[in-house]
């Protein structure tokens, strides 16, 4: 089933004007607002015609589309713009795929957690929180997963600056 056909089914329950299809080399992407994400995901999973029973992948992305501000020490800081989360869904039953994308403001990246829909999202969301600082509302245990708890900053943001020392050990080479 293509993304356009899926959008036809979604029309029954959602006002589809808020969705947008982005054409792309590796398959179309459905851009959705974050406030309907949770309802949408439950619908995508539970509707018989769609039956997206598995979340293959969840990635956080720093789009870095804000304004770059030069700082005194030569590094830069990004102000404004967006972070994004991607959801790659797949249905074992119908063997079709769907990619969702949610844009989040960089200053306050909050998105509802889909952990209750697909349990596999648990660690993926914690990872995105750890590396990008995206807050997943409703996640039962949102804390750092890869980095230590007392780490500063979110490393995969494009304007990340490495800390000089961690617990007395020098970090840069």
């Amino acid at each position: 089933m293509t993304t356009t056909e899926i959008l036809e089914i979604l029309k029954e329950k959602f006002s589809v004007e808020q969705f947008e299809i982005q054409s792309n080399i590796g398959g179309e992407i459905l851009i959705v607002p974050s406030n309907v994400l949770l309802d949408l995901c439950f619908f995508l999973r539970d509707d018989e015609r769609l039956a997206f029973d598995s979340l293959m992948n969840l990635s956080g992305v720093d789009l870095a589309d804000g304004e770059k501000k030069k700082l005194e020490d030569g590094s830069f800081e990004i102000v404004g713009g967006h972070l994004a989360t991607y959801y790659h869904l797949h249905s074992f039953k119908h063997n079709h795929k769907l990619t969702l994308k949610v844009l989040l403001p960089r200053e306050n990246p909050v998105v509802p957690s889909v952990e209750r829909v697909w349990r596999s999202a648990d660690w993926h969301e914690r990872e995105a929180y750890d590396l990008f600082g995206i807050v997943f509302e409703g996640h039962h245990n949102l804390k750092r997963i890869l980095l230590p708890d007392d780490w500063d900053g979110y490393p995969l943001r494009k304007d990340y600056k490495v800390q000089e020392f961690y617990q007395g050990m020098k970090v840069p080479y």
Binding site: N24, I25, G26, G27, I29, M56, N57, Y86, H88, T99
Partner: peptide, 9 residues
């Protein structure tokens, strides 16, 4: 590569 994205498994 051109502008775009892919999820390949």
């Amino acid at each position: 590569p051109p502008v775009g994205e892919i999820y390949f498994r």
